[in-house]
Amino acid sequence: MKPAPFDYFAAASADDAVRLLAEHGDEALILAGGQSLVPMMNMRLARPSVLIDINDCDEMKFMAADGDGFAIGAGTRQKDILKSAETCTAVPLLLKALAFVGHVQTRNRGTLGGSIAHGDPSAEMPLVAVTLDAAISLRTSNGERTIAASEFYSGPMSTERAPDECLMAVSFPLSTGAGTGFHEVSERHGDFAIVSAAAEINLDAGGKCASAAIGIGGAHPHPVKALKAEAILVGEAPSDALIEAAAEAATDGIEAMDDVHATGAYRMRVARVLAARAISDALAEAGL
């Protein structure tokens, strides 16, 4: 289990990284925390001929309010997000999801951007990004663009990122006053989710749902924003029946996968169970 040979460049800056990407094109991959990429390289399931290491690009490690959003640099390590009181306040859903991500050793290296760009259908960070419809910024040597997280994923470990684009940052909408909930199930704590559900809900002064963001991970080939469930919630006063209806709708459009851990039917049923729990948590936290 040794990686195929590759050439290695340590990018000194984001500009350096995109320049190297432009130079080496399809054959190059960005190396962030490496906690998903390196296992695949060790197994030769991924075999880039060039690795561009962004671990020394300090400018890609930041967490800061950014207009209506809260931006996190792609190179920011998961452990630093967990320790950031500011981020926890601004994007509480992220904190809840991170409690399920890996282990101490992997969070010490693993980055937000790496997880988002890798796009494992069961991973927590992509689910949070899709649920909140975060803005993902991508840069090439020619410029930068922003894409909504809900548009970013096209399949398992498959995204709209072009080979010469480097993921720079993810900007999450500020969660002022919102309640959040995150539930997932895996055989063992710390493993990728078999299925997961995220929710962020704001209540208006009258106690009705002013906004709702619901997402399901692990079921579909990529994380899914449960628009129908959101629509059921918004404008309504929460009740058990409403939660149940929203949870029932949360798997709308999902085509769940079978694998060694669970059947697609399991994922569909449990996605609704976890969606109900996430919505309940969010409502409770929002002050219901």
Partner: peptide, 27 residues
């Protein structure tokens, strides 16, 4: 395991535990 699950290769890098099988020496 060489794929980052078992933890037997854990070392401290700059005082923090990491999986030495998931980091290249050059890093």
């Amino acid at each position: 395991c060489e794929h980052g699950v078992c933890g037997a290769c854990s070392v401290l890098v700059e005082g923090e535990p990491v999986r030495a099988c998931l980091m290249f020496a050059v890093q």
